[in-house]
């Protein structure tokens, strides 16, 4: 579904991604790990279309379309979802109206009629239960006054409602206590299917105990330097990143 070839990107003249390759197929869960500043969150931002990032080379194809040519909203309408590391608080915008607008704009893009109020409510109830999201939060203003954990759970609730084909979770585990982590992971697992895929960006192997990935990639200095299965994550937990960094910098004989 997603094919990233030699992706290069910069922010304010600083090169962040330096030729990144990655292919993702439906049904797969990919974990992206790596030390601080390696470009993990930048990859998420570039894929979602954040303004500050400038793509300087390479290509990204999403279901046959040039993803980089699309506006952020059209990427979402094509089925890309970014769960934010720091979800934004927007006072004055109700959570539920926001979701309804999002859902109906995505439906309109696909040539579907807007969901009537009753069906929307029913769907919202189902998904709230699926991801254990508090009904009281649904009716509040978007993330306003939410705790860190509540914000992350709201991201997963939105994910459940919008049913994207590819979801990128950007350090969704950061700032979560163990119970919240489990709830978030359970939500993601409940949403996994043979038709959708997940990219889980994380620092810690802990999340991967709950969301078991098919592939693990190590991102370092703007490139994927090693890929493997979940065993690689365990190895990283044990050894850290240094042994991999050395292999990158080692002269080619």
């Amino acid at each position: 579904m997603l094919s990233i070839k030699n992706l290069q990107a910069q922010v304010e003249d600083k090169q962040i991604l330096k030729g990144l390759n990655l292919t993702i197929n439906p049904g797969e869960v990919h974990a992206i790990m790596g030390p601080n500043g390696s470009g993990k969150s930048s990859l998420a931002s570039v894929l979602a279309g954040r303004d500050a990032y400038e793509v300087t080379g390479g290509e990204v194809e999403f279901y046959g379309k040039d993803l980089l040519e699309l506006s952020p909203e059209d990427r979402a309408r094509e089925g890309l979802f970014l769960a934010f590391q720091y979800p934004v608080e927007i006072p004055g915008v109700s959570n539920i109206n926001f979701l309804k607008t999002a859902m109906n704009e995505i439906r309109a893009y696909k040539g579907l009629e807007p969901l009537d109020a009753k069906s929307f409510l029913k769907l919202s109830k189902e998904k709230q239960q699926l991801v254990e999201f508090d009904a009281k939060l649904v009716n509040r203003c978007l993330n306003e006054g939410f705790s860190g954990g509540e914000k992350k759970r709201n991201e997963i609730f939105q994910l459940a409602m919008l049913e994207p084909r590819l979801a990128i979770l950007d350090e969704t585990d950061s700032g979560l206590d163990i119970d919240a982590l489990r709830i978030v992971a359970n939500g993601v697992n409940a949403l996994r299917s043979k038709d959708n895929a997940f990219v889980v960006i994380t620092h810690y192997q802990r999340l991967l105990d709950y969301i078991v990935p098919d592939f693990v990639h190590v991102l370092f200095d703007g490139k994927i330097i090693k890929s493997g299965t979940k065993v690689l994550a365990l190895e990283l937990e044990e050894k850290g990143y240094d042994w991999l960094k050395e292999s990158v910098h080692a002269p080619i004989v």
Binding site: E73, F81, V88, I90, A102
Partner: peptide, 19 residues
């Protein structure tokens, strides 16, 4: 905030109106 709303499929115009 604009990017957050747009990243959920909401058009720039609607996002501005919401904000």
């Amino acid at each position: 905030s604009m990017f957050y709303l747009q990243s959920r499929g909401i058009s720039e115009q609607s996002a501005r109106a919401m904000l």
